[in-house]
Design a protein around this nucleic acid. Structure first.
Lengths: 229, 229
DNA sequence: CGTCACTTTGATGCTGATCAAAAATGGTGG
DNA sequence: CCACCATTTTTGATCAGCATCAAAGTGACG
């Protein structure tokens, strides 16, 4: 792994207070690997070999059952995934594939468990990370069960605007098909929902969404700090 | 706390390898409290004071938004809850209320965090428990997104039969209103879904469900080890 | 300027929620 | 033991949300 990325990884909260020795132990066996778009990184049902961290690009977590598939999350840098499976050494419950070209840091699962037992700072950081991931899933479940698809879209727009610096102009970055899947709706429905939101201050301009009346959007979306991040 | 319960708690995986000293430290500040049915134990949005463990009875986790409420989980002994909020010292994302009279062990949040930092065995056990809880939520999210309500009911019956010893006769224990809520459907729909399942080997006899043809039920339910426990 | 992929629009059907009412169940007191 | 009442459960009718299939529109790019 090159110096630049090493430094980037070192600065992650997960490794913040880990001793130099243990950080080196983790990194000495780790790979930083580039993948093209559309590659399946892990498959549900397999046993975990590595803890994965998205360093660049984006990754989609999904699951299948009886010829149906659903997107459970979309990850951007710097996020760990399949931490719970690594800790328990049990099969993955989700699959993962790259949504764009991506760089993934892969740390052998056994090394993660070993350093966890030796380094209290790493243990603390890891449990914090896992708790954070847990809370994300709970938020996703609440979003799914307590809102309809138009409300999910409206809140996604508000959140994304905040992430992109409250410019009231949101660059999509992904195609609408993927966004639809992320939001738990079909592309057709996303289209119709966007049409709905024009009544609530949102305009769809090519690959951007523009918020023309944020108060109207807020009052429709009813954002909730116990669901949205 | 009485000796009997102390022993029960001591034998939980969470405390299995914790030193006597640290176990006593946790227990010395803990309460074992009885609650009647229908008591709200925690409210979403509040900050955590205690880690909770269901010792007896059952507890419902739920969340509300915009005049809607949804049941996220039903807990039986011995299960921890709100572990993630305790670890991160952040507000609860769910509320909890007793579904029956219940006994709850409450360990001060600060004690949990302190012992975590001092006792590697407790740290290991706690991260294992949190990972297990994480995987439960992921399973719930998949169940919700990948199955319709009849399939959820069919799989619940299969699981409950296994828990109750494969007698092919399942005692409900809770009223159908609560079961419906647990399974993410209205009582009306539960009733209709049960009628549907009579085509697939399930008979509804008073407060019991009877599986008359488990192969038919299995073939309809399509149980999946990556969704069901 | 034509092709191909993506997106939108239209028509239709399924799933599950809601409201209303009937039926079944269970407990209580005469 | 039975009649009565309250509660739970079931049944029926209707409606909203979302998926699906089909077709038309749009835009990027060779």
């Amino acid at each position: 792994m090159r110096q630049a990325e090493n430094h980037l990884v070192r600065s992650l909260p997960l490794f913040a207070n880990v001793s130099e020795k243990h950080f080196d132990e983790l990194m000495s066996t780790a790979f930083l690997q580039r993948f093209p778009q559309g590659i399946t990184l892990i498959r549900e049902g397999d046993l975990p070999d590595f803890l994965h961290i998205v360093v660049e690009g984006s990754v989609e977590l999904f699951a299948s059952h009886d010829a149906h598939e659903t997107v459970l999350d979309i990850l951007k840098p710097m996020t760990t995934f399949i931490l719970a499976a690594v800790i328990r050494d049990e099969v993955y419950l989700k699959s993962a594939r790259t949504l764009s070209a991506a760089q993934i840091l892969m740390i052998p699962a056994q090394a993660v468990r070993d350093v966890f037992d030796q380094d209290p700072a790493f243990a603390r950081a890891l449990v914090n990370e896992l708790a954070a991931r847990y809370r994300c899933v709970v938020r996703a479940l609440k979003d799914e069960k307590l809102r309809n698809s138009t409300e999910r879209l409206a809140n996604w727009i508000l959140q994304e605007d905040a992430h992109q610096g409250n410019k009231h102009q949101i660059a999509l970055g992904i195609d609408k098909r993927t966004l639809a899947s992320r939001l738990g709706m079909t592309p057709e429905n996303l289209s119709r929902n966007l049409a709905q939101l024009s009544k609530h201050g949102v305009v769809n301009s090519g690959h951007d969404f523009i918020i023309e009346d944020i108060d109207a959007l807020r009052s429709f979306a009813k954002p909730n700090s116990l669901i949205d991040q």
